[in-house]
Nucleic acid binder design. Structure first.
Lengths: 205, 205
DNA sequence: CGCTGCTGTTCCGTAAACGGAACGATCGGA
DNA sequence: TCCGATCGTTCCGTTTACGGAACAGCAGCG
């Protein structure tokens, strides 16, 4: 019996000698936890302030389907899940496993990659990796009331915040503001800015 | 009508003013292209040298299901796709969109993250991002005949290749060997090694 | 030559994911 | 207070993904 495992170290049973489990062992990170997927979809939808009915209509799926998906009572088809995430403007991967990220979405001088969607007792969060290239600042419209933004700068100097009262931070610095007003991001100087962006959406209701 | 779009620039219809399409526009990168997904699953399976029947049995799904999945004639359920990818030892995300990567799989001093699975006329490839920490070299068993490994070193100094005739390369260097013999990876010096690893599996038959 | 064991595909009945319609609950305005 | 609109859930008939069995095509062996 030829032992086959290819090169990059396979998951291998027993990464921690804990369980008596001889099962094939999970492939680190990704999961098919449908309830969790449903929660992430719902979090994204509510963060965008659109109703279940509206999203179902936009995505071309039945309300029953979307309801079941969000509540984790169904085991959605790829086609279904894709139709929904596409409408939410996020890659399919961002609702599957917690981290693992997806492709990038671009604006004028700003690009942001959604790394993770998660939640605690009273808010949902979207974590982005962000790059701001030198040039005219990027403007964003206001969010719903109560939304706050947290930016941590890794490299370069960033001027960001409400358009009428921007803040500035260099590498290692942190900025925070409530983003229910127009606001923007701009690199100060010639250097490109690398930063993380955390959006906090208070839980509706 | 309140305009809602959250902060990080949303996909926005019309990233290139090409089509007369007013559709919502795809979320960059991720796709639900079932035939492509099927091809990637098949590529992974054949690379590991296991039969459709065997994989179906291991994953606990019907042969008909797996056959239909690989041929793109079905629209699989998340549960199904997960059962299969879990058995293949790869994260779900790595078969969904081409790139976009998944979580990391670890060995002793080596960690490798599967970035992409793709294929050309006569081979399938698996591309990994690889990190080798200083310490005793990691050993890998032999692959099937004909498999070649290509390593490009980004940082640090790497000694890798067949156990009885290892090769060495520094940042910018490239290594290649046929990996049907036991082989390993080791960091030279105190520095951690960053590298990409490309496995080439000649197409069976 | 059969026979055995395997490959991957196709057939088929069952289980379940699907979309549409009906439902109770909530909210805002007349 | 009543009405209309919209919210999210539930009911239901249709569609389809599911697993098991039957199938054709090969390879090895007596």
């Amino acid at each position: 019996m030829p032992q086959s495992p290819p090169d990059p170290p396979r998951p291998q049973a027993g990464r921690i000698p804990a369980g008596p489990s001889t099962e094939p062992a999970e492939p680190a990170g990704a999961d098919a936890d449908t309830p969790a997927i449903g929660r992430r979809v719902r979090a994204l939808r509510e963060a965008r302030g659109i109703s279940l009915s509206a999203l179902a209509r936009l995505a071309g799926v039945g309300k029953a389907t979307l309801s079941g998906l969000e509540n984790g009572t169904r085991n959605p088809t790829l086609e279904t899940l894709y139709a929904v995430t596409a409408q939410l403007g996020v890659p399919l991967t961002s609702v599957l496993s917690g981290p693992a990220a997806g492709p990038t979405v671009r604006g004028a001088a700003v690009s942001a990659t959604l790394l993770e969607v998660f939640e605690d007792a009273d808010a949902t969060y979207e974590l982005y990796r962000m790059r701001v290239t030198p040039g005219p600042g990027q403007l964003s419209p206001a969010h719903q009331p109560g939304v706050t933004e947290h930016v941590t700068v890794f490299a370069g100097v960033l001027r960001a915040g409400p358009t009428d009262a921007p803040l500035t931070a260099a590498a290692g610095g942190h900025l925070r503001w409530t983003s229910d007003v127009p606001h923007g991001y701009a690199a100060v100087g010639d250097e490109e800015v690398a930063a993380s962006l955390l959006l906090r959406y208070p839980r509706p209701k």
